[in-house]
Nucleic acid binder design. Structure first.
Lengths: 112, 112
DNA sequence: ACAATAGTTAAGCAAATACTTCAGTGTTTG
DNA sequence: CAAACACTGAAGTATTTGCTTAACTATTGT
């Protein structure tokens, strides 16, 4: 389960845009067509398709075309990969011997 | 604990570059100076400073100057914010009533 | 068959990125 | 005090991004 730098580039880049995060957010509540994804966004359908291609290239979203409708869904495994990369760095820091005290204090009374 | 879109933009954008992830990775193992961060990277010190400014603007890294040395350290709270945004979307998807079966099956035998 | 629907593709453009080099600014050290 | 050190900032440049419009390709409904 090694982290491929190129895929991380694509995933974080994909998540760095508010329109694309909006699309991911929508898809987290269930599959949707391109037009459904486009509907709440203030931009052309063409722009939405381009964003969708970025998401698909990153692996965060998978799409499938049936007839004239392209149905999009989230790929939880990819989300998990991005999540995991961040989590590893955070824990490496928080579990350092000299920081462990701070960490335990924080997790105890959940002031964080 | 609402997610500020602009900050998420900056954080994911910051993480979308391999050099900046390398710097975060280094910093997760402990604080470092600018030159120490630059040492393993094949680019000018000036470029590294620019990357560092991106990281600092995103809130992922905090720096402090003492004498002529700028010491950089990771900001775990910011990492957690990014991590949390992804985690929320993934769980929203995985805990959908109609998907719950799949999710439970997967977490049970850890095939994932 | 015809029109409406759903999406795709290409071209073009302004703005943002990821560097470079070069010329500084303070800060230690000998 | 002078040289080395650790950055810092500005300017320039090539590439990438995030759109737009417009023309096009399939499907589906009447």
């Amino acid at each position: 389960m090694l982290h491929d730098p190129a895929q991380l580039d694509l995933m974080f880049q994909a998540l760095a845009d508010p329109a694309r995060r909006h699309m991911v957010e929508r898809l987290s509540r269930g599959p949707a067509s391109v037009s459904q994804l486009a509907e709440p966004l203030a931009m052309s359908l063409s722009a939405v398709v381009q964003h969708l291609n970025v998401l698909e290239a990153s692996g965060l979203v998978r799409t499938e075309k049936l007839g004239r409708v392209r149905t999009c869904r989230i790929e939880p495994k990819a989300l998990r990969t991005a999540e995991h990369w961040i989590n590893e760095r955070r824990l490496t820091w928080e579990l350092r011997p000299d920081r462990l005290g701070d960490f335990l204090a924080k997790t105890k009374d959940e002031t964080d």
